[in-house]
Simulated assay, not measured.
Amino acid sequence: MAPPEPRPRAGLDPIARAYRLGTVTACRYLPDGLLNRNWRLDTDAGPFALKELDALDPDSARRSLAIMASAAADGVPVAAAVPAADGTTVVEIGGHGYYLTPWIDGTHLLGPDMDADISFHMGAVIGRIHAALARPGLLPETGPSTEPPPTVATAHDRIGDYLDQIAARAEPDAFDRAAEPLLRSRLDLIAAHEHLRPSEDPPAGPAGWTHGDCQNWNLLWRGDRIAAVLDWDRVRPNPYGEEIVRAATYQFALPDGRIDLDNIAALVAGYRTVAGIGPEALADAARRRWWRLLTSVWHLKYHYYLDRTASDRVFFSDERLLRWWTANLDAVEAAFTRERR
């Protein structure tokens, strides 16, 4: 028998009272979230999306929701917060924080679903996000909090920690057995490419406040247009090129790890209809993003330290993406710098 779906820890009735929802007639858990927990609620007041804050404190969530409201005023599609009965956007019940947004019908498009026109639109929306977050007075004026590219020694320490954990297990499970050879192979891949580590100089190109996690699971589509940009919990100052590259390589990755390079060029063209960025900045951002992917196994923190498996699938899909990207490094960087066909 399948285990019961998780429910909000504060209980449905207190949440319904806080938001004046009436009766909750259905509650469906949405398992795709990696950090916080999400549900669809069907209620007397209509359908809503409910987020329970695990990795975000209530004050930070309130800041994110205020940013979303400002971005919406500048034409960015968002799911605006529903105020509770007392007017607050985040309620705290039994030591847990929650916020509610209207339910927006839509789908999460993946790499095979994308074409050049859809990609162009996505690029323009990212440009509008950057322009909206740059509105004077919305956020503090600050430079990007960039760190030097990870060193080879740092990567070895990260990967070695998980190899040690697997080795210490009396009976490795299926995930351990699948991950272990990939981690050892990753060490070989790093050794073969350590001469391509990006410069420790600051990243090239424009920077400012960014969404921070603009990727396929945070973009809700209706047809060929974005209906809502979700989860503004990681808004941060960063090079714009970093967000463009991260969004494109995740969105246009195919199941076997290949990246649709023509869609990259279309996304960049769409972005440039709203905001400017040059080829040097994009090539630099692509190299830095590739190196970060090569030296990171962030997914395994959730599996081995937090006993959460939602990121397991991303570990394997990132591995396929990384292998293809490494074999086609020059072609990927060229896609970010060429004109749209």
Rank of each mutant, 00 (worst) to 15 (best):
T295S: 15
E280A: 05
A207W: 12
Y29C: 04
L183I: 14
L196I: 03
A55W: 06
V91G: 11
T295A: 15
G127Q: 01
D32R: 10
R258H: 02
R236Y: 11
V297H: 03
R288T: 01
P202A: 07
E280M: 04
E147K: 07
T273Y: 05
T142W: 10
R63N: 13
T309I: 07
R40P: 00
A286S: 08
R197I: 11
D74G: 15
S145C: 13
L56W: 13
G94Y: 10
H96Q: 07
V125H: 00
T309S: 10
S60V: 02
H130L: 04
A253P: 10
L53N: 03
E141C: 14
P237M: 01
E171Y: 07
G87Y: 15
D161H: 09
D32Y: 12
P255I: 04
P181C: 13
W232M: 03
L293S: 06
L41W: 00
E339C: 09
G97Y: 14
R287N: 07
T210V: 15
V235A: 13
S317Q: 08
D157N: 13
A170E: 07
V152N: 00
A10F: 07
R340N: 09
Y271N: 02
P77Y: 12
G106N: 08
R135D: 09
E333F: 06
P77K: 14
E180H: 09
R169E: 14
L100A: 11
D54T: 09
R258E: 02
D57G: 00
T337Q: 06
R236L: 14
T154K: 11
R258W: 03
I277A: 06
L293V: 08
L182N: 06
D188I: 11
Y99F: 12
P255F: 09
P237L: 00
E147I: 11
D54C: 09
L139K: 07
I244G: 09
R246N: 12
D57T: 01
A178D: 10
P4A: 05
A327L: 03
A275K: 12
P31H: 00
R40I: 08
A49Y: 07
T107K: 13
G143M: 00
M122L: 15
L183P: 11
F336V: 00
V78A: 08
L196F: 03
K301M: 01
P150C: 12
R320L: 15
A310D: 11
P136I: 03
Y240Q: 07
L294E: 07
I129P: 10
R28L: 14
D176W: 14
L220D: 04
L182P: 05
G97R: 13
G123I: 03
F336M: 01
R222N: 09
H130F: 03
L267A: 08
P279V: 07
R287P: 03
E147Y: 11
R308V: 12
A266C: 00
P203Y: 04
Y305N: 14
D224I: 00
A248R: 05
A116W: 05
G87Q: 12
A248P: 06
A168G: 15
W324Y: 13
S185K: 12
H211S: 09
L100M: 11
L294Q: 09
I226K: 05
G97F: 15
A331M: 08
E92D: 02
E92Y: 01
R320S: 11
P198Y: 06
A275Y: 10
